[in-house]
Amino acid sequence: MFELLGIPPQALLGQLLLGLINGSFYAVLSLGLAVIFGLLNIINFAHGALYMMGAFVAWMLLNYAGIGYWPALILAPLIVGVFGIVLERLMLSRLYHLDHLYGLLLTFGLALIIQGLFRNYYGISGLPYRIPDALSGGYNLGFMFLPKYRGWVVVASLVVCFGTWFMIEKTRLGAYLRAATENPVLVGAFGVNVPLMIMLTYGFGVALAGFAGVLAAPIYSVNPNMGADLIIVVFAVVVIGGMGSIMGAILTGYFLGLIEGLTRVFYPEGSAVVIFVIMAIVLLFKPEGLFGRAA
């Protein structure tokens, strides 16, 4: 077999698959951010903290209430979503008339609070969360061993991402939403409860972060800092995809997972920075993002 830069093609295939798995997390998280930004014009810096909260809620459900992984997959995002709605009602809703930057600063503060509180109560070491029995073990694909759970992550994220895209771009509800962001007064005049819709949208975007958190719980340790550095990367993903573009966020999430996976093979030290290099290049040459509409 020929080799590509010293890497056998089978190994490369394995790395690409792993990249896709990581991309799944980026996709779900950046989708949530994009939904919130696209419809509310809020840059939700607390997204990473809420992702962490999703994982913690799953852990708490299991350890305090004996509720396992599958119910948690629904319940934890709901709880995080409701928490998000409370934040939106109490604070964010008062900032809509101001510059974007205030939303960013507020959510930055919220992220500090949430992460700090969890760090105080649960320490930093991380808490274990077991892979559900139905998904333990794995498949031997010949070129690599694929744990079942990682396969499930890809499937679950694809379903959620494209379900969301379909709902926003192809259904009547989505059409209302899009219209409400263009001209809230007019849509309100047609009898649509715009504030309610915005509130639910924020709750939904945040619930997506919680969902990603539950997905992550069994493979990464559940720890208060798990979202802190991730948020910066996910931001970059959204910016590269084009702020507010739903499909852009999804595709860019998977795409950057792949790029990062390749970097890990050819220049592992650089894998933490490659996304920012791409972001700088994209912003300088195509500022509206790869999939965005010109602002």
């Binding site: 507020l106 609070i113 760090r119």
Partner: peptide, 21 residues
């Protein structure tokens, strides 16, 4: 106070943005 410093900073951020822009 360890991690409380982060919490307090966060609270200041939030109060600052909400009330004392």
């Amino acid at each position: 106070f360890g991690a409380w410093v982060t919490v307090i900073q966060g609270v200041i951020f939030v109060i600052g943005v909400m009330l004392f822009r």
